[in-house]
Structure formats: C-alpha cells, structure tokens
C-alpha cells in the first residue's frame, strides 16, 4: 500500500521536471512519506525497468555524474490512470469517513 503510494508520488514529482534522486528524496521527506531514504532506489529501478521512467547521466559540478530521471510517455499514460484511481479511492475514503462520524468508536480502527 505504502509502496504503491510512493510510486504514485514519484511519478507525480517527475511530471513537472527531470530530477536527481536526491531531489526526490528531499521532496518526499518534506511530505513525510519516506521513512528510510534507501527505499526509493529499488522503486526507481523498478519503475525504470517497467518503462515508466528513463534517465540521463548529467555531469555534476562535484563528484560523480548524476542520474536525472524523467517520465516516459508510457509513464505519463500510467499517471493519468493512477490519477483517476486515486481520486476514486479518495472519494470512497471521504464517503466512508463521513459515515464513520456517526459511529465514533470505530474510528481508530481505520487510522
């Protein structure tokens, strides 16, 4: 569940601009979505292997050349689908939340 969320967020972040893994980590940490930084490397590699992401090597002022990830056309397509799925999911959750207000003792189960 959390992993799926992270993938979705990575795609969302890359929609706007090509990013270095460190930038992605930065932003995900701001949003408090990342527990350990290492998590995103297996995810990025998997998304790349599925053809949703691509990367170019770009020289950095200091240190090693960096991988800048971008969204592929296939990735953009997926993102559209995910957006739809997400809004559906959040609608459902919102509706369920409205229901729960009337039964307060069940609330903490669904945190």
């Amino acid at each position: 569940m959390r992993k799926g969320m992270l993938e979705y967020c990575i795609l969302l972040l890359l929609r706007a601009e090509a990013s270095y893994a460190n930038d992605i980590i930065e932003k995900l940490k701001e949003a408090q979505l990342l527990v350990v930084e290492g998590t995103i490397y297996p995810l990025l590699t998997r998304l790349k292997n599925e053809g949703l992401l691509a990367y170019n090597w770009i020289e950095s002022p200091r240190g090693a050349p960096r991988k800048y990830y971008t969204l592929t056309p296939k990735g953009s397509e997926w993102l559209v689908g995910l957006n739809a799925a997400w809004s559906e999911l959040s609608n459902t959750v919102a509706r369920l939340k409205d229901l729960k207000v009337t039964i307060p003792e069940n609330e903490n189960i669904n945190l």
């Binding site: 290492g38 590699t45 991988k67």
Partner: peptide, 21 residues
C-alpha cells in the same frame, strides 16, 4: 537476490558519496 540489484546498490553508493560530499 533480485534483478538489477547491482544497479540499486550502485545508486545507493552514489547517495553515500553525496552525503560525504
């Protein structure tokens, strides 16, 4: 144990280098 494990480990090593930097 998984495909592309080499690549993942290299990426993480790069991250370590960045943090050292």
């Amino acid at each position: 144990r998984q495909a592309d494990g080499q690549e993942i480990a290299d990426d993480i090593e790069r991250r370590v280098a960045d943090l050292f930097e």
